[in-house]
Each structure stands twice: as C-alpha cells, then as structure tokens.
C-alpha cells in the first residue's frame, strides 16, 4: 500500500552503516582481485612497449589470418545455432509431443561437457583413426586439423546459447498473440516472422551476443581439433597461446587485449538487451 508505492528498506531491517561499508568493501575487493586487476593487467601488458608495438602485433599477418578464421567460425556457428535455437524454442514452447522433456535436456547437454571432451569427440569421429576417418581420407576430405573441425567444435560448444535465452521468453509470453494472428488469417510464416520473432528479439540478441562471445573465445575444444597450423587453423585465442609460449608476451597480450575488448562490448550489449527485455537478470 503506502509502503509499496515507495519501496525503501525500513530502518528495522537495515544493517548498521559500518556493516554495509564492510560488505561493500569485501565485494569490491573480491571482484577487484579476481576480475579487475587481471583485466587491467591485460591492457597494461599489451601497451607495455607503446602503442606502435601494439599496432604491429595486431597487424601481424599471422594475427590477421587468425582474426579472419575466428570471424568465419563465429559467423557460421552463430548463424547455425541462432536458426536452430529459435526453431527449437518455437517447437518446445508451442507444441506438445512425446519426448519433449528429453529434447530440452539434450539441448543443454553441451554446457555440461568439458571443452576438451567437445574437441575429443570430433577427433574420435573424424580423426585419422576415427569412425569416419578411413572413409574421409579415401575421399581426401580433411576435417580434423582443418577449418571444418574448428567450425564444428565451436558450433558444438556454443550450441545451447540462443535456445536457452529464447525458450523461457517464448514460454512466458504464451501464444495468445499468435492465436489472434491466426484468426486474422496470417499464415504460419507470417505469424512467426510478424508476431513471434519481434516478441523475442531482445532475448534473441542477448543469446546471439553470448553465443558470439563464446564462439570467438573458445579455446579448449578448438585447441584439440585445430592442430595449431599457423595461418591456417589458428584462431585468435590459440594465437594468444602460441605467442605466449614463444615468450612474445607483448604480442600475446596485444592480441588478448582485442579479445578483452570484445568481452567488454559483449557485457555492454548484454546490459542493454537485458534492460530492453524488461529487467531480467
């Protein structure tokens, strides 16, 4: 009533000021030591030899080819998983069918598999000694230690992101508007494109952003299938490792700073999408 109009914490259930300051201090210190300091370190190390060295490291031919491969990989896997995520969410939210529970559980599966295992399964499937290995080499198709392997492993790892964001939205919004559109004579595609998709667009954007961040940053799975062929199967995160292991720290951190910027932009867009979607966390 009067209390609800202006939500504030009444004095009776508020901590004394010193407790509040202490708790804020602990939270800031914890996040500071674990997150902020390492983040700052990346940029400091990246610029430790000046902006020119940073630019050189970023413009290096091997770095550029790594960026190209990462962009290509992200492009393919985000598109594929985006289409899949929306379709699967639409299917699960709108229809009832046998095995629906199993299907939704399977969609979450890649989240719980270690990135290394995600790489391993593709090696076991397409590798030289893998299930399809003999057939592939007979037809001179290379998947493992080649670009298709990198794309496949990345797509596997980022598989659930879009579905996971879009599904709860579709479920909570119900299907009344779709039903209204149907009674007005819209076709299935018209309903989907004109009603369903606009309703979930911020959730979709949020899912795509997260999917993209993970696709561009994936390390473990890609590391297993790529073979680290410079200029060919090297993604940006793998390139960071190579530079680092060569003791080219400035170069490694310069490339890492690019990925950090990507992460910061992702967080920014995520905040905006969350706000637009209406205060979801």
């Amino acid at each position: 009533m009067s209390g609800a109009a202006t939500r504030r914490v009444p004095s009776a259930v508020r901590e004394p000021a010193w407790v509040r300051v202490l708790l804020i201090g602990v939270a800031v210190a914890f996040l500071g030591l674990l997150v902020v300091v390492p983040l700052v370190a990346v940029f400091r190390e990246a610029l430790s030899r000046g902006p020119a060295a940073w630019l050189d490291a970023v413009r290096d031919e091997e770095t550029l080819s790594a960026i190209r491969l990462t962009l290509l990989t992200a492009c393919v896997s985000v598109t594929a998983n985006g289409v899949f995520g929306v379709t699967a969410a639409w299917l699960i939210a709108r229809y009832d069918f046998v095995g629906k529970g199993v299907l939704s559980a399977l969609i979450d599966l890649p989240f719980s598999v270690s990135p290394v295992l995600s790489g391993l399964i593709f090696v076991l499937l397409f590798g030289r000694q893998g299930l399809l290995g003999p057939w592939l080499s007979a037809h001179d198709v290379r998947i493992i230690f080649a670009v298709p392997g990198v794309v496949l492993a990345t797509t596997f790892v980022t598989f659930p992101f879009v579905a996971k964001e879009v599904l709860p939205l579709m479920q909570s919004q119900g299907s009344q508007e779709e039903e209204a559109a149907l009674t007005l004579g819209a076709s299935g595609w018209q309903v989907f494109l004109g009603v369903t998709l606009p309703k979930v667009k911020w959730g979709l954007l949020y899912g795509v952003i997260l999917c993209n961040a993970r696709a561009m940053g994936e390390f473990g799975a890609v590391s297993v299938v790529s073979g680290h062929v410079r200029g060919l199967t090297n993604t940006v995160p793998l390139h960071v490792e190579i530079l680092y292991n060569e003791y080219n720290f400035a170069g490694a951190f310069a490339v890492a700073s690019l990925l950090s910027l990507l992460a910061l932009v992702t967080l920014g867009v995520k905040k905006v999408a969350e706000r637009r979607q209406g205060g979801r966390t």
């Binding site: 009533m1 009067s2 209390g3 109009a5 009444p10 004095s11 009776a12």
Partner: peptide
Amino acid sequence: SGSGKTTVLRAIAGLEE
C-alpha cells in the same frame, strides 16, 4: 488504497520511523 493506514500500522510496529 494509499490513505496511509498501513504506514500508521507499520509506525506502531516500529517498521517505519
């Protein structure tokens, strides 16, 4: 609603100053 009756009650309980 909004006539202040809950505020008075909460003040009696000490939940509002």
